[in-house]
Write a protein that binds this DNA or RNA. Structure first.
Lengths: 134, 134
DNA sequence: ATGCACCCTGAAGTCACTATAGGGTCAAGC
DNA sequence: GCTTGACCCTATAGTGACTTCAGGGTGCAT
């Protein structure tokens, strides 16, 4: 299996696969006579794991840790739970931040009286002189 | 007003102010005999505008556009509304993505039976062989 | 022989800063 | 007058997770 096949099979770009190899997330595969990378099933499985983890928003460092834990079936599951729970907490913070941000923006959009910048409540709210309107 | 004063007045770091100057978001101020930057009220107002916009999650390119629009009071307010509405839409997408992500993670956390990696439903769900569990 | 899709490496670009190295300025205190 | 410490300066590199680019090699069909 060549790098393009692996990319199609996992939904990962060729460049990203090479990047993961440089980052030591994915072991360097064998090369054929043309110096092309030749991947085995194990690579496909490992890259799938990485892809799923990334799709779930884990950072590469978290993925590294998850891979390390997953590599030994005798490890305690607690480490995985901690990483996941922390990640959920981080997502909760982001959700709260974004929701606050959104309501602020919508409030400004709704109050915009236009038609020109001179009357625009959004610009007014962003400008220091528009403090009272913010 | 020196760069440190401006930073304290707006809640921006000195490095960020210099960065904004290099990015031409903030005009280069006059210098005193010691080659220190000397800021006027106009700089304070412009940096406040930038800071508020950034706090609302606008990208620097969006801030640039908002500044351009804000600079002419005769401009139509519509441009500002479009930028803001697009930003709200982008936030909505992010909120939906994060919410989906969160429920996925929580589902996996809840179903984790532990105690070891061998029984861990999270790792199982991330692994290709655990497809049926995901 | 030509075209095209695919592969290779190494380096630079993205975003919005942040940090670091290596210096200069200025007021206060001894 | 000398040091200490807070502030200022420039230029450069680092962050995360890729993406893009330059410049080339390979393999197969026409």
């Amino acid at each position: 299996m060549k790098i393009g096949d692996l990319g199609r099979a996992t939904g990962t770009s060729v460049e990203t696969i090479r990047f993961y190899e440089a980052e030591r997330l994915l072991p360097a595969p064998a090369r054929n006579s043309a110096n092309y990378r030749v991947y085995e099933l194990a690579h496909l499985e490992r890259l799938s794991f990485i892809k799923r983890s990334r799709d779930l928003g884990f950072t590469l460092d978290q993925v590294r840790e998850l891979l390390r834990l997953a590599d030994d079936p005798g490890n305690s599951c607690a480490g995985v739970d901690v990483i996941t729970a922390r990640h959920v907490a981080a997502i909760d913070r982001k959700l709260a931040d974004l929701a606050a941000l959104r309501s602020e923006l919508v409030r400004r959009l709704d109050s915009c009286q236009g038609p020109t910048i001179a009357d625009c409540r959004i610009i007014e709210a962003l400008s220091p002189k528009g403090e009272a309107a913010g």
